[in-house]
Design a protein around this nucleic acid. Structure first.
Length: 531
RNA sequence: GCGGAAAUAGCUCAGCUGGUAGAGCAUCAGUUUCCCAAACUGAAGGCCGCGGGUUCGAAUCCCGUUUUCCGCUCCA
């Protein structure tokens, strides 16, 4: 037992496996890298986190509704969102320096080099004075055209540069990775950071998105992607929901769902997985009000996290100063994992970028008519709404919850050493709400326990255990975070009372069996989190 | 992707300079036990990650490979 952070992380991982929370995927076949399965307790905890989020977002907000869009979507969606072009790059590694580069960029650098050499010469010869974006302009004398043509014909480097640019473009268009590598070798491209002779690997395509074929017969036209984010499913359904639900701006659409990304490096347990789950809400607002809503959602999401009782010091809030092209404000909620602060949730002001893109690519109007009167007494009229996004990684939230709840508690007294491992999960999130134990296996106690179990199991996820000493059973439930244990003893048979033992304090009290429904119900009520 | 380390029962590990696989916990069947883990008896459980090589003989030595961990690198 040790409290060092790296040990804590290791212990949580093995605890998660040992007690049926998280298993490595396909383990009996040596595993599948960066993919994990949720076990019998994991799925309960995960579902409870989802419920907490769904209730806080959808149920508690009258103007937010849910959505469950398909994982498969029309391929053009990913062109509109920028995922197709933005995140599929040919990569090449230099085995000497272990540096990785984008093959096309290396070659484009070479093109620039050749061309600027040409321009230097041209300047000397007095043909051209300017060099912009790889093209020549501004001849000093004679006919502009003439000088330019002369230059193109005369200068070897310029010709070579143009030629190479064309070849690179062709290779990329044809997905000719072997051709790209050949160009790198033929043009003797050096490692930009090393003077040594490079040893290039094959060129490999790095694709953020997974692709598959739709339809039984494979063909170019049938490629569909597994969504790399759930947000686009919301954007492309924004009109459907707005119209069918008669939604008035501002309104939100919430979705929980799987997303898929190829990561260059996917490690650190369920922090970075190829298949992961997101809980996203897109909030559509009138242009100009986005800053206020951004602040409002920042606050609301922080409160959602802190309501669970997590120490505020474990959280860090990071406002981006460098913004993505589609955002006008961005804010991360980060949690201090044992290996450092990591983003758990992002609140982003995405402007109208996505909806505008979809309007452009789909030729469908994405605008909303706002009948409300503005300060000038006229309606706001038609506009494409701005969007505030809240996006939380469910798997990261799950891990955060496990790490935060995990404790190896020292219970030693002077007489003897003792310890227990306890998951101090919030009762609302605990996989099992209560365990029911007959104190011994005879005298009708198991039957009595089963009776109580049957009367409560409609409302709560319960376990009934009669094996092993009572102490062992308590400890087993502590280890999966069960907040309450109910013990049936001989007195129960006489007066129908039981003891209820609290996980966190290990204290117990005697209550009427008939009151259990209310007692447990109050303790695990969502009111405790949402009220 | 590179470098380093590791892989033996469900878990934590032992197993030296090669000689047919071991413990504790957990599991199962009993015994005991009226409230906080490791009481008693018995049982079951292993292609020693996988493949090859050296050897009369390999968990042990060598090579390859896979997975995991730790660094570096890269990246929504």
């Amino acid at each position: 037992m040790s409290n060092a952070p790296e040990d804590l992380f290791k212990n949580v991982i093995s605890h998660a496996k040992e007690y049926g929370f998280v298993f490595p995927s396909s383990e009996i076949y040596d595993g599948l890298s960066a993919v994990y399965d949720y076990g019998q307790n994991g799925v309960e905890l995960k579902n409870n986190i989802k419920t907490y989020w769904w209730k806080a977002m959808v149920q508690m907000n009258e103007n937010i509704v849910g959505l469950d869009s398909a994982i498969f979507m029309h391929p053009t969606i990913w062109k509109a969102s920028g995922h197709v072009d933005g995140f599929s790059d040919p990569m090449i590694d230099n085995k000497v320096t272990n540096k990785r580069y984008r093959a096309d960029q290396l070659l484009e650098d070479k093109v620039s080099e050749l061309m600027s050499k040409a321009v230097e010469e041209a300047k000397v010869k007095g043909i051209a004075t300017n060099y912009e974006d790889g093209f020549l302009s501004g001849p000093v004398s004679i006919s502009k055209e003439q000088a330019y043509q002369d230059f193109l014909n005369l200068d070897e480097d310029y010709k070579k540069g143009r030629e190479l640019m064309q070849k690179v473009e062709d290779s990329i268009k044809d997905d000719d990775l072997i051709g790209l590598r050949k160009l790198i070798i033929d043009y003797e491209i050096k490692d930009p950071l090393s003077k040594e002779e490079p040893d290039w690997t094959e060129v490999r395509q790095f694709n953020l998105m997974f692709s598959t074929q739709m339809g039984a017969i494979a063909g170019e036209a049938d490629v569909v992607y597994l969504r790399p984010e759930t947000a686009q499913g919301i954007f492309v359904n924004y009109l459907n929901v707005q119209k069918s639900g008669r939604m008035k701006i501002p309104f939100g659409i919430a979705q929980i769902g799987k997303a898929f990304r190829n990561e260059v490096i996917a490690r650190q347990f369920i922090i970075r997985m190829r298949e992961f789950e997101q809980m996203e809400m897109q909030y559509f607002v009138r242009p100009g009000t986005q800053r206020d809503w951004f602040e409002k959602w920042k606050e609301a999401r922080l409160k959602w996290h802190l309501a669970l009782g997590t120490e505020a010091a474990k959280y860090r809030f990071h406002e981006h100063t460098k913004l993505a092209h589609y955002a006008d404000a961005a804010f991360d909620i980060e949690f201090e994992f044992p290996f450092g602060f990591k983003e758990v949730e992002g609140i982003h002001s995405r402007t109208n970028f996505d909806l505008s893109q979809h309007q452009k690519f789909s030729n469908k109007k994405m605008q909303y008519f706002d009948p409300e009167l503005g300060p000038d007494g006229k309606p706001y009229g038609n506009y494409i709404p701005y969007v505030i996004e809240t996006s939380i990684g469910l798997d990261r939230m799950f891990l955060l919850t496990m790490i935060n709840a995990y404790e190896e508690e020292d219970l030693s007294t002077e007489e003897r050493q003792d310890s227990r491992t306890v998951l101090r999960l919030h009762p609302c999130l605990a996989p099992v709400k209560a365990a029911i134990f007959p104190l011994t296996k005879k005298d009708g106690l198991p039957e009595k326990a089963q009776q109580i179990m049957d009367s409560l199991k409609i409302d709560f996820n319960l376990q009934c255990e009669e094996k092993d000493t009572i102490g062992k059973r308590y400890r087993r439930q502590d280890a999966i975070g069960t907040p309450f244990c109910i013990t049936v003893d001989h007195q129960t048979l006489e007066d129908d009372t039981v003891t209820i033992r609290y996980r966190d304090t290990m204290q117990q009290e005697r209550v009427n069996a008939a009151d259990l429904q209310k007692i447990i119900g109050d303790l695990v009520s969502w009111k405790n989190l949402l009220g």
